[in-house]
Amino acid sequence: MPSAIVLKGLVKEFSGIRAVDGLSFSVERGEIFGLVGPDGAGKTTTIRMLVGVLLPTSGTAEVAGFDVVRQPEEIKKRIGYMSQKFSLYGELSVQENLDFFADIYLVSGREKEARQKRLLHFSKLGPFVGRQARHLSGGMKQKLGLSCALIHTPEILFLDEPTTGVDPVSRRELWEIVYDLLEENVTIFVSTPYMDEAERCSRVAFIHKGKILALDDPKQLKTTSGREVFEVKVKNPRQWRESLEGLPGLLEVEIFGDKLHLSFPKGGMEETALKELLARPGGAVESIRKIVPSLEDLFISLVKGQPSGG
């Protein structure tokens, strides 16, 4: 079976500025792929081109085997899309929104009833069917948006920052719905600025200023990150931080509560050696241990490693 999504040198310029700068990768069927990066990295622009509402400046992309420029209507039949901004009809109730999207996707009769019942069940929106969408909480709005995007059981689902502005409980519920979809072999393409959410994906692409910095399985990314991180527990981390400058091979020091994260190049430091280096008179190092670097550590280091071009 061909890949669900294929990008080849995809570029989008807005008045001379490259918002998306030559993306090439593919997403396989049944995987959950995360596009991860800060605001303004080009996530939304990429998704808009893939769902066929924005024309690329150059390059090509295929979704479900169809070209985004030449066959957007074929794509639109097969995908679900939830845009970043809440974009349902606020004056319409939950039920009316579901009905509207069912009609737009030509779902009717018993099928419509059955699907709506199921979507209301797993979104837990059943008790709120009569409420106008504009009066729902942030989390419920997103769940309704997701339900509307799923009314026609799409092959591929595009979610643009689905959890931005959503409380932790609703966020967890949203992810549970997404995992249920994976079991039905729906391909999911999700963008997020949150690193903890990136860990939930089967593969992630780090995107910054329209370019891919790294692309892999999150576990793999961390082990091949080319760095080692030690967690050091001390009494007063702020004072320690300053005194550590100039430590041989030290890439970075970050404070996490009463602990310091010290990053070194891979193989650049041993735990025992570090212990000796930090054993100073008056210094009270309570513990030292080697930890797996977080995706956030990695992303920051990748961004810092980029040639600075404004």
Partner: peptide, 14 residues
Amino acid sequence: ERGTFEQVAASPLS
């Protein structure tokens, strides 16, 4: 302006 156009533009509605 409200973004609903984007949602329907990504649907098969002609």
